[in-house]
Computed example of a mutant assay.
Amino acid sequence: MSIEMCIEAEDVLRFEALVLAFNKTGVHDFEEEEYGFSGLFPISGMAFYVFQKEKCTVIPQLLAEGADKKFAWPVGTRIKFRYVNENFDECTSQLKAFISNLANVSNANFLLSFQYDTIYAVRDKGGLHKIADF
């Protein structure tokens, strides 16, 4: 069974900022998809899938458990990260670097959850906050 982490980002997140955050984390090759784009992190082999409202229907509400009680922003981008189990530590390290880079290159709000269940990090007007260890 594969671990899947999810980002739900505010609809003001720009494509250029997203690509820059991936580039700063070592990802330079992307595959255009009908829903957005996908790729792999080079060290861990962790796959990611970016769903953009410009290319597909993105539910504008936050889906993470309990998020609707704490946060309120229209979602425009969802990103799913699929871990490679045997590279768990590398996947976690690269995901942490990615969310830090994303928070640094964009003011867009976002949250990171485990399969829309447990929220692990939130980027809001106060910056990036890690809510739980992952």
Rank of each mutant, 00 (worst) to 15 (best):
I3E: 03
E4T: 15
E4Q: 13
E4F: 04
M5W: 09
C6Y: 05
D11R: 14
L13N: 05
V19Y: 10
F22R: 08
N23A: 13
T25N: 09
V27T: 15
D29R: 12
E31Q: 04
E32D: 13
E32W: 02
E32N: 12
Y35G: 02
F37Q: 02
S38A: 13
S38E: 13
G39S: 12
L40M: 07
F41P: 00
F41R: 00
P42Q: 06
G45H: 09
M46F: 08
F48W: 08
V50R: 00
Q52Y: 13
Q52K: 03
Q61T: 11
L62T: 01
L63G: 08
E65V: 12
G66Y: 14
K69Y: 10
K69G: 00
K70I: 07
F71A: 02
A72N: 13
V75Q: 01
G76S: 07
G76A: 02
T77K: 01
R78N: 09
R78T: 09
I79V: 14
F81L: 04
Y83T: 01
V84G: 05
N85S: 12
N85R: 11
N87W: 03
C91V: 05
T92S: 09
S93R: 13
L95T: 04
F98D: 04
F98G: 00
N101C: 09
A103T: 08
V105H: 10
V105K: 12
V105L: 07
N107L: 06
N107H: 14
A108K: 04
A108G: 10
N109C: 09
N109Q: 10
F114I: 12
Q115L: 06
D117I: 05
I119T: 06
Y120I: 02
A121T: 12
V122F: 03
D124N: 15
K125M: 04
G126N: 15
G126C: 06
L128M: 11
H129A: 13
K130D: 03
I131C: 05
I131N: 09
D133A: 10
F134Q: 00
F134Y: 12
